[in-house]
Design a protein around this nucleic acid. Structure first.
Lengths: 247, 247
DNA sequence: TTCTGTGGTTGACATGGATCAAGCCAACGC
DNA sequence: GCGTTGGCTTGATCCATGTCAACCACAGAA
């Protein structure tokens, strides 16, 4: 229960007020391409914020679905659990990306979404999004594009899991992270991993030892500098070349 | 160029007339849940049929996107090509399923769709589908569900590629095919594979020899009977058990 | 400071599936 | 008929990655 101190209330109101129209992620996120007036209509919809502490679930597989979530800050993973106890990380999501699209299909979430650092998301009630996207064509079209992009991304992961060897997978993973950090205005060459080696391995279909060895190898070869979770990419084209070392 | 013989024209017109409202796939396909009147409006949109001969492309990666396709009859595969020449089958599609959703994201197709037997598809101009789905809420919602289902399916494949061993993958694949044939009113226990061992292997991230060996093993163990592309499933629960033989 | 737990690294060894190679089978053209 | 071709099967061998195990590094608690 948050304090109702007048100052706090004012702050929280002003935060709500700045929803999408003032969010510096709007070019990466759902509002892409909307006019100012349209943005304000979207603001009405995206009024609920939710903080998720590191390690907490945003939602769990099996829970009823009613909202998708836009990540305002922080970092998430999604994972799927098989009946026999095996699980796999299906993705890592960062600011500006959407979570929960998998739940539309059955009205239930089909994976877990877990914060890898303290995070904040905007909840977007899905039925209201459908109503609004009937009225704002740009929003409708962009939402379709976002869903489609997710399908294309998944095909890329399938490709990676189906045809690449361990080092190629890790190189592809690092280049992908780097590219996503870049488009958020961060350094493309230096970043902190929010996930463990085990989580990377799960995502890439590898064991954590294999991931660790590949990191070491990349470092020996001068492609990257690794210190725990701190990564510096020294040689982008070297990594790209590694990705094509076909078997 | 089709002949313009009056009789032919009449036939083709009557075929067009029967579009969605009379199609026996409508409960599996886009029209699911629409009223009769809504169905007729969808018919207007889905007026173009296209025959695709075995081995021909329905579309190619890189081509401009303007329509999605509903499979009326036949069988397709989609595959993705990497710059370095590697490729992977990303899915097999059968009657009632949609093709082309990947193209929405960039307005270009990102994979190839190839008929594995002589097939027929209904082309659905995407921008007109967006217009209509603004007016028919059921259509809008169902389309979203279909896209979401594709994402969930892809997660399943990622799971398969990331955590399962060869025999588990093939067992999962056969059970999935069986289930899809069943929901189309065909035998769940007996069917013809439309794809080669190599294509199955590509989809499952295995070499064709491994696929072949797994088929032989399943046969020895009495789970299935294989004769070339003809498969009979003798022991469903045996196959299901195989899927959980964790490593 | 030490203790404890979590995550990471590295080595030695095992193994599942890839690779290479030979041969089989069914369909098709001549 | 016979030869050819594409797809499939099977065997022998190899190797990338998994497995098991020891140890290290750092963070937080006592």
């Amino acid at each position: 229960m948050p304090p109702t101190h007048p100052l706090n209330q004012e702050v929280s109101l002003s935060v709500i007020k700045t929803a999408c129209s003032n969010c510096n992620l709007r070019e990466l996120c759902l509002p892409l391409g909307l006019s100012l007036e349209e943005l304000e209509r979207l603001d009405d919809l995206v009024s609920t914020r939710r903080r998720v502490k590191r390690g907490d679930h945003l939602y769990r597989a099996g829970e009823g679905f009613d909202s998708i979530y836009a990540i305002r800050s922080g970092f998430f993973k999604t994972d799927v659990l098989l009946e026999d106890g095996r699980d796999q990380v299906t993705g890592f999501q960062m600011a500006g990306e959407l979570l929960g699209l998998d739940g539309i299909s059955t009205e239930h979430h089909t994976c877990n979404a877990i914060a890898l650092e303290d995070s904040e998301v905007c909840a977007i009630p899905f039925s209201r999004l459908e109503v609004l996207s009937r009225e704002i064509h740009t929003l409708q079209h962009h939402f379709h594009k976002v869903m489609s992009r997710e399908i294309v991304r998944d095909h890329g992961v399938m490709m990676l899991l189906g045809t690449m060897r361990a080092e190629e997978r890790l190189a592809a993973f690092l280049l992908n992270l780097s590219q996503r950090f870049t488009s958020r205005g961060f350094s493309h060459a230096e970043f902190y991993l929010r996930m463990t080696r085990e989580e990377i391995g799960s995502y890439l279909g590898l064991k954590l030892e294999t991931v660790s060895r590949a990191f070491s190898k990349f470092q020996e070869e001068g492609h990257i500098a690794v210190q725990q979770k701190h990564i510096r990419i020294l040689n982008v084209s070297g990594l790209k070349a590694l990705m094509n070392h076909q078997r």
